[in-house]
Simulated assay, not measured.
Amino acid sequence: MKKILLALTAVAAMTGSASAADLGARPYVKAPMPAPVANWTGFYVFGGGGGGLSNADQHVQTTGTNTALTIDQRQGGSGWFGTVGAGYDWQFSGTWVAGVFADGQFGSLRATIQDPIGGLTGNQKLETSWAAGVRLGWLVAPNVLSYVNGGYSGAHFGQTNFTNVVGTPAGIHLNSYNRNGWFVGGGVENSLNIFGVSSPGWFMKTEYRSAFYNTKTQNELFDGTNALVGRDIRANSWNQTISTSLVYRFNWTGPVVAKY
């Protein structure tokens, strides 16, 4: 009897060892790595330039007569400009960025002004402008931000000197003036750490902006005396621009991968 029990015990032990050997080793599962993140919160400065188009709805009217003669028309133009500015961004909810900024533009964005009643033509130049606004963006990638923006804008328009139908100075002008308005736009900002070149903190942004300035009524004046000619021009201004700027972020630390 004892021999039988010993034999059965030996068989059971051998069967268990064989079953354990047949089981495969537990597979190794690597812990998932977090997606790279970047820190967009902080101050930045930028500078660049671009070009644009200018359009204006104009209303020309004679004054000082019993029956005023009026003409409505739309005129346009184009030109270039430079820009500088600064801002501050906050990153929240991982991939969202909100910020405030201010910038200034300078250059020569010209629009045609015509007085068909008097046979006069001139150029009105947007010499300087400035803007203050907010922007909201989403991180397409850790180092690429797509955004929209909007806010308040002011502009200085230079003096308009008219020429007559044969192209010679007419001795008539419109004074320079300032106008206020608002703008909307959007763009893309991306890190310059590309093509294997390390440039921490340096970015490039390309932006479209559409600015609208309030209507202004001006009197045509004789050169030298500023006496009234007898015609008024009322016009608004709508400017569309595209610019590319070099951006420097003071606290750029990403993208990085969290450590465990």
Score class of each variant (00 low, 15 high):
215 T>D: 14
182 W>F: 11
166 V>P: 02
214 N>Y: 02
128 T>H: 04
118 G>V: 01
176 S>Y: 01
157 F>H: 05
193 N>R: 06
221 L>G: 09
236 N>F: 08
252 W>S: 05
227 A>E: 05
189 E>F: 07
125 K>V: 15
225 T>C: 06
161 N>H: 12
125 K>P: 02
204 M>A: 10
113 I>W: 00
141 A>L: 15
114 Q>F: 08
172 I>T: 08
187 G>N: 08
175 N>A: 12
156 H>T: 00
126 L>C: 05
230 G>F: 05
191 S>P: 07
173 H>W: 01
180 N>M: 09
136 L>I: 15
138 W>N: 14
207 E>W: 00
117 I>F: 02
173 H>K: 11
135 R>E: 14
207 E>R: 00
182 W>Q: 02
241 T>W: 04
170 A>I: 01
230 G>H: 04
190 N>Y: 12
222 F>T: 15
195 F>M: 14
122 G>M: 11
128 T>L: 08
247 V>C: 09
171 G>Q: 09
158 G>M: 09
252 W>A: 10
180 N>A: 12
158 G>R: 07
229 V>R: 02
116 P>A: 08
228 L>G: 03
206 T>E: 12
152 Y>S: 07
202 W>A: 12
232 D>H: 11
224 G>L: 11
147 Y>E: 01
143 N>E: 15
177 Y>S: 10
118 G>C: 10
138 W>Y: 14
140 V>I: 13
191 S>R: 02
126 L>K: 10
226 N>S: 14
133 G>A: 10
238 W>P: 03
235 A>P: 02
157 F>V: 10
169 P>K: 02
167 G>D: 00
202 W>N: 05
244 T>Q: 13
165 V>H: 04
218 Q>C: 10
237 S>D: 07
174 L>F: 06
184 V>K: 00
135 R>P: 11
137 G>C: 12
228 L>P: 04
240 Q>M: 10
159 Q>Y: 01
246 L>V: 13
189 E>Q: 14
145 L>P: 06
233 I>L: 13
129 S>G: 08
